[in-house]
Structures are given as structure tokens and as C-alpha cells.
Simulated assay, not measured.
Amino acid sequence: MAEAANIPEPNAVFRQIVHIVEDDEQFRLSLLDLFQSLNMDAQGFEGPSDFFDTASKTNAGCLLLDVRLPGINGIEFQKELEMRGYDLPVVFMTAHGDVAMSVNAMKAGAVDFLEKPLQTAELIDAIKAAFTLDVGQQQERAHRMEIRRRAASLTRRETQVLGFVARGLMNKQIAFELGISEIMVKLHRGSMMRKMEATSLADLVRQFEQLS
């Protein structure tokens, strides 16, 4: 590997980890040593089963993934990650890359596709890009969780009103649908808006869309 590049800034909100999935033990250990020397958190995994047995779905960071793994290729593993609920940006690496494989990897959402032997500057740039993407994903995930927390605080009637309001129904129409007075609809609607911390109807609709 070439000389080290600039070290990524530590993330102030999430502890970001480089999850290395590489079946070549010597190369995996060399990567762990590199990231340790750069004061970056990293964990090594021999393969997909090792990763799924050990890695937490709540971990932040990225996945540094060999595209050719025993029994499964990296792109198939990437799809399985998504199915299992992992949301880590992926940087692929390979000693046998070709154009078609790299195109497929990028179409599948990979941040970058690096060929071995890895150049340290290129590797760190890819990790920095993945970490930046991860910050946005973590913040979006936290926002969705907050919206679900707000929605869980609603009463059954307020939840019904939320659904009708998000569909664009007027208070009079909602009252007819629920078989209650328009005054009661206004009371439920006001309470629902406060609990959802909605600043406007448009904001409420955006939050409702996050619940689906």
C-alpha cells in the first residue's frame, strides 16, 4: 500500500466502524493494522456467516468487502445485507475486477470499487465517502424512529384523524367518515398535530409518509 492519506475526521454523533469482510487472513490483518495506525475503528470478518453472527445492525460506518468470497460473491452478499436489515454503505475490493463487475457493484449501490493491491490514499478516500453517506443514513434512520415514537403516542382516534388528514380530507369529511362532530375532529386534529410536532400540514404529510 502507498503512503497514508489524510485521516477522516472522527464523527461526532456515531461511532463509525470499518467492517472488513475478507477471507484472506493475512490481508485482513494488514487492513486492521492500517486502520489502527490511522486511529480508525475497524473489525475483521472471515466471511458472511462470521459477519452475520457478530456484527450489530445498529453499528455505523461502512463495509469493506471482497467481491469474491467462498460460496457467495460480494454483490450477492450485499443484497443479503439489505434483506437482513443492515444499512452499511459498501466499498468493494478485488484482485480480479473487470468492468462488468464494477458496473454491477455500482448499480447495486456500492460507494466505490477498488482493485488490489489497494492504494492507501484511494482506500481512505473511499472510506471517507462511505462514512459521509453513512452519517446521512444514520440521521435519516434516527429521524424515522423519532416520527414513529411520536405516532405511537397518538390515541386510536388521533391516529385515524392523522390518516384522513394525510389523505387530504377536510374536517367535515373526516367527521362524516368517523361519525363524530366536526368540533371533535378539530380537537383530535389539534392534539395530533401537537404530538406529531408538525409545523404545517405539509410537514405532517411528510412525517406520515415516513411511517409507511
Results as ranks from 00 to 15, higher is better:
Met106Leu: 13
Ser49Glu: 15
Ala121Gly: 10
Asp41Trp: 11
Met101Asp: 06
Val111Ala: 10
Glu46Asn: 11
Glu76Arg: 06
Pro48Ile: 06
His96Arg: 04
Pro117Phe: 08
Ala130Ser: 12
Leu34Val: 11
Gly109Arg: 02
Gly61Glu: 04
Gln43Cys: 13
Ile124Pro: 10
Leu154Glu: 06
Ala105Lys: 01
Thr159Trp: 08
Gln119Ile: 10
Phe77Glu: 05
Thr94Ser: 15
Glu158Gln: 13
Ile75Phe: 01
Ser49Lys: 12
Phe45Asn: 01
Asp125Met: 10
Pro48Met: 00
Val91Lys: 00
Ala126Gln: 02
Met145Ser: 14
Asp41Glu: 14
Thr155Phe: 05
Lys57Trp: 09
Ile147Met: 04
Ile75Trp: 09
Phe77Cys: 07
Val67Cys: 01
Gly97Asp: 04
Thr120Glu: 13
Pro48Lys: 03
Leu88Arg: 00
Asp66Val: 07
His96Met: 08
Ala130Phe: 15
Thr155Glu: 03
Thr132Gly: 11
Ile124Asn: 00
Gly85Lys: 03
Val135Trp: 00
Leu114Trp: 09
Leu64Pro: 00
Phe131Cys: 09
Asp53Leu: 10
Val135Pro: 12
His96Thr: 08
Met40Ile: 15
Arg68Cys: 11
Met106Asp: 02
Pro117Tyr: 07
Thr155Trp: 00
Val103Met: 10
Arg144Gly: 01
Val99Gly: 01
Ala126Asn: 02
Asp53Gly: 15
Lys79Gly: 14
Gly109Phe: 00
Arg84Ile: 02
Ala55Lys: 00
Phe51Leu: 07
Glu122Ile: 15
Leu34Pro: 02
Ala142Leu: 09
Arg157Pro: 12
Thr94Pro: 14
Asn73Pro: 04
Gln138Phe: 12
Gln43Ala: 14
Leu38Gln: 10
Phe131Val: 15
Leu69Asn: 10
Ala142Asp: 08
Asp33Ser: 11
Asp41Gly: 07
Ala60Asp: 12
Arg148Glu: 07
Ile127Glu: 02
Thr155Asn: 08
Tyr86Phe: 12
Gly71Phe: 03
